[in-house]
């Protein structure tokens, strides 16, 4: 609303010495468009975007089509991207494989639910709890602590995986779900995003509660948390994405505690004999995180507006 009235105000000004600018402004307001856009520029950029968009989307399209192809089409020469006679056979094959697996498939699903559920819940709660004082309170050591978190974004977990393995063995949580859940709770990214998002909330919200004698814990739980829903939804989705792709190969030895991702990878590794089922697996692996993102896209983008690094 505000933006539109501002644009109108600008447009009403007549620039006798610069008719081009005047025309541009009027056109911009009439079509509710941005100023300074040319058709040639649009054409060039949208064409570039189209080409790159095809490159990005083609492998995904292939995943969908392969999942729907009957076997003879999968092995067809020359290979075709699009399916001719779509069928759900591959999913049926997958279902049969699943039912014959040594560990009941529901067990894999349960394991995945425990790992992603525990990791997501633990991370959202612990990271929010720590983000509140970093964003809104003052205490000695605040800056160095946050700097450590930012520093942790600058290297990846690959650097620390060997000591991590040793630490998890020492804690005797090797070969349990905790080996995946506990490290996931302390990822730096979630705390960083949550702190940045909380920082932009008005202080007045907390002041009045403080005057009423509410404890910091109470303020956090009943005032801050309900107001940062977009951020915790974002944390949950990001965390889910990173845990979803984890096969747990490094820490989980017993078949009964391995996640769905591991079982599906085994099926996909079955080679030509299982080409159909593995195409269905590829589809499921890709479809689930995409669906979650799709449902939460606007909230995630809202959270990301505060993701910038000020220093």
């Amino acid at each position: 609303m505000m933006e539109r009235t501002a644009a109108k105000r600008v447009a009403r000004v007549y620039y006798p010495d610069n008719p081009k600018l005047n025309r541009m402004m009027k056109r911009g307001v009439k079509n509710n468009r941005k100023v300074n856009r040319s058709a040639a520029g649009n054409g060039l950029l949208f064409a570039l975007m189209g080409i790159c968009g095809i490159f990005m989307v083609l492998p995904l399209v292939m995943i969908v089509n392969n999942a729907l192809k009957p076997l003879d089409e999968i092995f067809q020469f020359p290979p075709k991207i699009f399916v001719r006679n779509p069928t759900l056979e591959n999913f049926a094959d997958l279902f049969i494989l699943i039912n014959n697996s040594w560990v009941p498939f529901t067990r894999y699903i349960l394991n995945t639910l425990i790992i992603t559920g525990g990791g997501v819940l633990g991370h959202v709660i612990l990271a929010s709890l720590a983000a509140y004082p970093l964003a809104k309170l003052t205490f000695p050591g605040k800056k160095p602590l946050f700097r450590l978190v930012v520093l942790s974004l600058m290297f990846s977990w690959t650097v620390t995986q060997i000591p991590n393995y040793l630490i998890i063995s020492w804690l005797r949580i090797n070969n349990t779900h905790l080996a995946l859940i506990l490290p996931a709770c302390s990822y730096g990214m979630g705390l960083y995003l949550m702190k940045q998002f909380m920082e932009q909330m008005p202080n007045s919200l907390m002041e009045s509660a403080r005057l009423d004698g509410a404890t910091e814990m109470r303020i956090f739980w009943s005032i801050i948390m309900p107001n940062v829903k977009p951020a915790w939804l974002t944390l949950a989705i990001f965390q889910f994405q990173s845990l979803w792709g984890n096969t747990g190969n490094m820490f989980l030895r017993d078949e009964q505690i391995k996640p769905l991702q591991f079982a599906m990878q085994q099926i996909a590794a079955g080679g030509a004999a299982r080409a159909g089922a593995s195409a269905a697996v590829a589809f499921i692996i890709a479809a689930i995180p995409i669906t979650f993102f799709l449902l939460a896209q606007s909230k995630i983008l809202e959270t990301m507006t505060t993701s910038g690094m000020k220093e």
Partner: peptide, 11 residues
Amino acid sequence: VFYAPSICGQA
């Protein structure tokens, strides 16, 4: 379309 590949794990 542009973001999806990065979140699809093993895809």
